Simulated scan of single mutants.
Amino acid sequence: MNEGSVIFKGSLNCLTIIMKEEEDYNSILKQIEEKIASSGRFFKGATLSVKYRGKKLSKEEERKLFELLRDKSGAKIKSLEEDTEEPVKVQPEQQPRPHTKIRMSNYYFKGLEEGITKFHRGTVRSGQLVSFDGNLVIIGDVNPGGEVCATGHVVVMGSLRGIVHAGANGNKEALVVALNLQLPSLE
């Protein structure tokens, strides 16, 4: 039995079950039952329309699948039907071309240029200085007493508890961004 023969995809009040066409029906039914059992109480109390695609099912197989979902999932199953909609295909001209700059519409990042960027992996500890002539991304924390200095933007992918100076060359547009900004207490 191929473990990847059944995929659940959910959207608002709808569950789509994607089944491999070449897989045996009883094997698929067993996989669906295992997925429901492993989902715990995820479906409990939900009201769902269920669609399936991939493997073609007879009316009897649909009935068995409906009963399995109704009896084992804890959800109220409104309907079960074959998904006849074609998946939406993205046209090549809609995809961004390589090296195309994509700008974020958020006001704070307006006009943000990539430029040269250095990635520093690890925690900046007390007494340590990390500096760079360009943008600087810290993949880790900046601890109290740690110092980060860059002529461009500074992004901290962790907690910022130390000192950060962005735009060290006078760039007043430079940003400091952190996942967790912790200001020192003034006591």
Score class of each variant (00 low, 15 high):
35 K>I: 07
35 K>M: 10
35 K>G: 05
36 I>W: 05
39 S>L: 06
39 S>K: 11
39 S>N: 12
39 S>Q: 08
39 S>E: 03
40 G>Q: 08
40 G>M: 06
40 G>K: 10
40 G>A: 07
41 R>K: 13
42 F>H: 15
43 F>D: 02
43 F>I: 09
43 F>R: 08
44 K>A: 14
45 G>Q: 03
45 G>S: 11
46 A>Y: 07
47 T>D: 02
47 T>V: 11
50 V>M: 08
50 V>C: 15
51 K>R: 14
51 K>P: 02
51 K>V: 10
52 Y>A: 01
53 R>E: 15
55 K>V: 01
56 K>A: 15
57 L>K: 03
60 E>V: 12
63 R>E: 14
65 L>P: 04
65 L>Y: 04
67 E>V: 12
68 L>A: 08
68 L>Q: 09
69 L>Y: 05
69 L>D: 01
69 L>M: 08
70 R>Q: 14
71 D>K: 15
73 S>Q: 05
74 G>W: 04
74 G>A: 10
76 K>R: 12
76 K>L: 06
76 K>A: 07
78 K>T: 06
78 K>M: 10
79 S>E: 12
80 L>E: 06
80 L>C: 11
80 L>P: 11
81 E>L: 06
83 D>W: 06
84 T>D: 13
84 T>H: 07
85 E>I: 02
87 P>V: 08
87 P>R: 05
88 V>W: 04
88 V>M: 11
89 K>S: 13
91 Q>H: 11
95 Q>P: 00
96 P>Y: 09
97 R>G: 03
97 R>T: 10
97 R>C: 03
98 P>F: 05
99 H>G: 05
100 T>N: 09
102 I>K: 09
102 I>M: 12
103 R>T: 10
104 M>Y: 11
104 M>L: 14
105 S>E: 11
106 N>D: 09
106 N>W: 09
106 N>G: 11
107 Y>H: 13
109 F>R: 15
111 G>D: 05
115 G>R: 08
115 G>Y: 04
117 T>E: 13
117 T>H: 00
120 H>E: 07
120 H>T: 12
122 G>E: 06
122 G>A: 12
123 T>N: 10
123 T>Y: 03
124 V>N: 09
125 R>P: 01
125 R>E: 15
126 S>F: 02
126 S>N: 13
129 L>R: 15
129 L>N: 12
130 V>I: 15
132 F>N: 12
135 N>E: 00
137 V>S: 06
138 I>P: 04
139 I>W: 04
140 G>K: 10
140 G>Q: 08
141 D>M: 03
145 G>M: 09
147 E>P: 02
148 V>P: 04
150 A>M: 04
150 A>Y: 08
151 T>R: 12
152 G>C: 10
153 H>D: 13
154 V>D: 03
154 V>W: 01
156 V>S: 07
156 V>E: 04
156 V>I: 15
157 M>Y: 08
157 M>E: 14
159 S>W: 00
159 S>T: 14
161 R>N: 12
163 I>F: 14
165 H>A: 10
166 A>F: 01
166 A>D: 00
166 A>E: 00
167 G>D: 00
167 G>V: 00
171 N>D: 14
172 K>P: 00
172 K>W: 02
173 E>Q: 14
174 A>S: 08
175 L>N: 11
176 V>W: 00
176 V>S: 04
177 V>N: 06
178 A>D: 03
179 L>Y: 05
179 L>V: 00
